[in-house]
Nucleic acid binder design. Structure first.
Length: 207
DNA sequence: CGCACGATGCGCT
DNA sequence: GCGCATCGTGCGA
């Protein structure tokens, strides 16, 4: 990645703390079109446009925090604008942005990203032992794929998205057409349409 | 294409 | 022990 391109990304303002204090369903929609940026130490910058999110609310049976605070979900109870990264299925990480004031456990899961910068690094991290080249559309289509492509893991849990190497930055984009659907991969709370997608994007985790 | 399943760690009951 | 906010592969249509 060229230095000027890197600087251009880091010059974009991160979404301010107050952004994450809006209603979580509002945040989940408003994150669409914004840029997820990780300045990976020693490895360069990766960035992508958020095209799919899910909201998880307190008292929502599908929310990790629904049954109270534990060591794992503690970041959800913390202040807004921080990362909640959790490990699941024995091999995958998923990345959330925490919303609401400290003490109120809500968050937005980032489910799909359209790669914008650092595609070679993403591909290298995603390739593993896979023989075939991964298409751009599949590089970060899925919460665990994002974490792999963006080098998000335990180290990134609790990072401040407003001022740290992992950030969500304001992208200039026109009005988006957004569709709401049931959330993916949960057993309870399927009646809520809390999955939000940029309509027609080829970078979604599922159509 | 779609569906079924295994991988694999760990938080929680 | 059980089940999980997942992904890749393999098989059949």
């Amino acid at each position: 990645m060229r230095e000027d391109a890197r600087r251009a990304l880091l010059d974009l303002p991160p979404l301010p703390r107050g952004f994450y204090l809006q209603e979580t369903l509002v945040v989940a929609r408003a994150l669409l079109g914004q840029l997820l940026v990780h300045d990976v130490p020693g490895e360069g910058i990766v960035a992508g446009r958020i095209v799919e999110t899910e909201a998880y609310l307190r008292d929502d049976p599908a929310c990790h925090a629904a049954r109270g605070q534990t060591p794992r979900n503690a970041p959800m109870f913390g202040p807004p604008g921080f990362a909640y990264v959790y490990f699941t299925y024995g091999m995958h990480f998923c990345f959330n942005a925490v919303t609401q004031p400290e003490g109120i456990a809500e968050a937005v899961l980032i489910r799909a990203v359209e790669p914008v910068a650092g595609l070679d690094a993403m591909r290298a991290r995603r390739a593993g032992a896979r023989p075939r080249r991964i298409r751009d559309e599949e590089l970060a289509a899925g919460p665990a794929r994002i974490c792999q492509a963006f080098a998000i893991g335990r180290e990134e849990n609790r990072l401040d998205l407003v001022e740290s190497r992992l950030s969500i930055r304001e992208a200039s984009s026109g009005p988006l057409e957004i569709v709401a659907r049931p959330r993916v991969g949960i057993r309870e709370g399927t009646e809520y349409l809390w999955r939000f997608c940029v309509a027609g994007s080829p970078f979604l985790s599922r159509p």
